[in-house]
Design a protein around this nucleic acid. Structure first.
Lengths: 148, 148
DNA sequence: ATAATTGCAAATAGTTTGCACCTAC
DNA sequence: GTAGGTGCAAACTATTTGCAATTAT
């Protein structure tokens, strides 16, 4: 078992623990989705998750994938990412970080090299807008798409 | 005529000029949409623009609004904003600036008070991703929605 | 046992497309 | 006159909902 696999197992266990802590039943479907999110380095859409799991998890329904992800987002296990491709992408890393979105293949990756700035912003703007969260997305083209 | 109206006229004329410079025909529909975008302070969706214009612009079709906006985006007159509400919002201000998105009413506004940081990011990451653009969005609740 | 969760089918929301007609230049 | 633009209807994609059957605790 290499370092990466170990990390994925840790991430998966962490998610399972969070799930139970929130009183959510650990169904086969939920475990499969959490395991899948823990092992992916990109941030898939609901449909991409469904397509990846439908083989190994026979009888899995698309509806369930959407519903499970929604539940996870509401309980803070997973974050929904807004993208220009109009499909929601999901990220099991809930710590604030920037994303790279490829305009060619629509893939969403983590922006490890992008230093998150000390953004100067007020908690409440003068017109009464209360800021809760900040999303930083870099749009561009991934290596593969640049070659085409 | 007050200062605001003057500014809107300027913005509208600027957009008309850009339109012509790109060789785009100045149809009634395109002019109506540009004028509407120039006078709005928020960033509406295609449907919101359609609803606002269908009365004054009789016979206007929703399809045309979508198609015209798409053309404008391709020619760089207007920017498409990705939002958590899964609908595209449009902004006639193409200079880089942050947005405030209300999680209550889904309205998108300019983040005038948010100082855009000197983001430390490479033009090309080590894994070959070429960054073209940066989107900074603050999620929260507007004054109206906080009262409810 | 029972409350939560799932799968199916059908509905909905946002957006796009094919094609015949129309209009800006 | 003609290339480009528009409107209609229909298609399409992503997502949600109602409800009966199933499963985790």
């Amino acid at each position: 078992m290499d370092a990466k696999t170990t990390f994925q197992n840790e991430k998966y266990r962490e998610l399972l623990t969070l799930c139970q802590a929130r009183g959510l039943s650990l169904t086969l479907q939920r475990k499969a989705i959490l395991a899948h999110l823990a092992e992916r380095v990109d941030h898939p859409t609901a449909d991409q998750i469904f397509d990846a799991l439908r083989e190994q998890q026979d009888g899995l329904s698309r509806t369930t994938v959407y519903r499970v992800l929604d539940t996870f987002v509401h309980h803070g296990l997973v974050k929904k990412i807004a993208c220009p491709d109009a499909r929601s992408h999901f990220d099991a890393n809930t710590r604030p970080h920037a994303h790279l979105v490829c305009l060619g293949c629509q893939q969403v990756m983590d922006g490890h090299e992008v230093s998150l700035p000390a953004l100067a912003y007020p908690a409440l703007t003068h017109d009464g807008f209360a800021i809760e969260e900040c999303s930083i997305v870099f749009l561009g083209r991934c290596a593969r798409c640049r070659e085409l």
